[in-house]
Simulated scan of single mutants.
Amino acid sequence: MDQLLRVGLIAYGYAAKTLHAPLIDATQGLQLTAIASSRPADVIADWPDIVVKTEPDRLITHPGLDLVVIATPNDTHYPLARAALAAGKHVVIDKPFTLDLREADDLVQRAEEAGKLLSVFHNRRWDSDFLHLSQTIAAGTLGRVVEFTSRFDRFRPDVRQRWREDDVVGAGLWYDLGPHLIDQALQLFGMPEAVSADLVLRRDGAKAVDDFNVILHYKTMRAVLAASTLVHGGTPRFLAQGTQAAYSVSGLDLQEGWLKAGLRPDRAQWGVDQREATVYHSFNDAISSESLPLGQGDYAGYYAKIRDAILGLGPNPVPASEACNVMRILDLARQSAAEGRKIAVI
């Protein structure tokens, strides 16, 4: 790779430390040049040769940076991205894009005016199970999908002291996991006709949404998106019912866990998932099944595609316009839950 793109990363919390920093560092043609963090000692311990800034604005104005990656608390995404675009940088924002569609639309306009790439890190497009499900649906194996369920459940009964679980704007499970599930559903089925949602606080002492059940209503099908912090197990990650067959897979993609354990995405066999999906067939009331290997996930592919898009060698892997559709559903679900009714997607 002849041209080296220099990357600045704002924040060094869980997402930045576990996902963004190692993925950027493992991508040929990208150089992780600077990190902004209120805990500089943590950064230096992991990246002793990197430039460390204590304030985001000082990183944004750091000379020579081509790309700024924003992995800060959700309520800071919009102002930081706005500042980075104004400084002439390409921008990647961790999900959710912004707090609402109004902010998202404004950033899209600013990026277009600046002639800069703007992308959102919807990394779960590159989960092994989602890639396999997408291929299975596209191949026509299931026929026409009539019902789709996407769940992301965990058992975390204790409310932790962190901004994601506090009573602040942009916190809660719907802002945390909702964007992943929405984005995957929109990739499979496009925009729905209507949205209905139940966003609740179930745990003792909960301050933010920790359980959701959202239905995307389509003309001939529905997609159910759900997540909870009080599920011990037993629920499939994906369940799709079609006119020809059904598809089920349980468990989670392994890449985040590997990154958390310190494994690098440039190692051999990265993303290879040993889980299997099950496809069910029914004929004359007799049910048969077959197990299919999931194959390989590819989180590292996101930043390789970002590199190529900046260099004019390929498309933006997650265009901001697609992230705006996610924000639209995120907003409509909150409206539906607040008003207790189905909301049309206009």
Score class of each variant (00 low, 15 high):
S336Q: 02
L201T: 12
L4E: 15
L199I: 00
A71S: 15
V7D: 08
G271N: 08
N316Y: 05
I346W: 02
I310C: 13
L259N: 07
T33E: 14
T235E: 14
L107E: 05
H20G: 08
D167M: 03
I93L: 10
E256M: 09
P96I: 02
D176R: 04
S37H: 02
Q335C: 04
L65Y: 00
V195L: 10
L252V: 13
F155M: 10
D253T: 06
L263M: 15
P315G: 02
I182W: 09
S282M: 10
H77P: 00
T18G: 11
L225A: 13
Y247R: 03
E256Q: 11
A185D: 05
A300M: 02
I24C: 06
L230I: 11
A36F: 08
V69K: 08
A208N: 07
A208C: 04
P179Q: 07
A45E: 05
V169F: 00
V145S: 06
D66M: 06
E193Y: 01
F97P: 03
G172A: 07
I93A: 08
R341A: 12
G234R: 05
K260E: 15
E165C: 06
R144T: 15
V43I: 05
P179G: 06
L311Q: 08
H77E: 07
D94S: 12
I93N: 07
L99H: 03
G29F: 02
Y299C: 09
G13H: 03
R275E: 03
G251I: 12
C324M: 04
